[in-house]
Design a protein around this nucleic acid. Sequence first.
DNA 1: TCTGGGGTCCTAGGACCC
DNA 2: TCTGGGGTCCTAGGACCC
Length: 405
Amino acid sequence: MKKQILHIDVNNAFLSWTAVNMLEKGSDIDIREIPSIIGGDETKRSGIVLAKSMKAKEFSIKTADTIYEARRKCPNIKIFSSDFKIYRKYSDMLYQLLLQYTDKIERFSIDECFLDMTEYLMKATLIEKANEISKRVKEELGFTVNIGVAHNKLLAKMASDFTKPDKVHTLFEEEIKTKMWPLPISDLFMLGKKTVPKLNNMQIKTIGDLANSDKNLLNKKFGKHGIQMWEYANGIDNSEVQYKKEKPKGVGNSITLSQNVTDIEKLEEILLALTEQVTYRLRKYELLANTVNVQLRTSNFQDTSHQGKLTVATSSTKEIYAKAKQLLIQMYHESMEIRLIGVRVDNLISKEETQLSLFQDKINEKQEKLDDVVDKIKEKYGYNSITRAGKMELNNTLKLKDIKE
DNA sequence: TCTGGGGTCCTAGGACCC
DNA sequence: TCTGGGGTCCTAGGACCC
């Protein structure tokens, strides 16, 4: 049986949501109607464009432009900072509305969902449902979406990317040739800026060129990725809408430093703060990590990373930090000017599934109690109420036990 | 005042084993 | 006579996504 799939994509999500939030708070301007962007903080060297209004787009401002660049293109551009709490709120509101149509929803990102409508259609057609959702989101939530209508996820996603904003597009099998094949290959999902020039060199310029090229040759040149791009160009995708909540495969936290850092002790302090955030989230998911990975980016954008296995899966701040610190010391050289530092944990397993020796259990129990106290304080008084970062020895935090809840 | 931060998946190559 | 050859596990790095 053919699947009935919708892909919902919020138009200029961060900017639209900021606009709606401002209007709700009594603002008399709608920043969607003026040249405006959501951007990072230049003084913290994270000054890139995260979202732009249609008016800003007219000045050919692009996502990921530097703010400096955006201002050069449009000197009186209005810049607003990002706030993920607001985005989460509107994303959840959208999700709640969509749940009224199907419970088979995959939250692909904060502003994109796939809906599997196969079992829920009844008499109405897929296109009618898409139009109804589009209208309701606009009227009830105050922002607009693009909706792609198709029989698989890839085609639905491609369709939602056609003309914007506030549009419903179909991309059924018989429409692939006319609607998708004339597009440049850079428009195809999963074809990024490294692969596009390689294909162009092979005289493959449009998605149609790719669809009609030699699959075996692509396999030889690009491996698995080659097969996938050929299938995508031909509209082939058998993947399911992943509507069940999945636990993450890894958890990470990184930061671009406001100034380059050369002092290893300073880096260790930052690493500890990052590790605390990571392990806190890990414990929320009730997962344990088996590997720790530390990433460094130097002032000239050289990325290096080291990873190592833990002897026993854990979510303990102390143990994960100990490994992270060891990795940092391995990697770091005197001459390095560090721009970015990050830590992530991978190979996660769920806590219940783990079987530990009695001995390990004893050790873990002690650490868990400490982490528990810290987590509770954070939940009660906010994340920044407590931090073990700094010169403070980890063991000193045992004193926290004395703090009453 | 150039270039974010959160992820997932894949691949090449080394170590080690039989 | 030129030092095979699978298999597995692990790590570093790259490509891509939003």
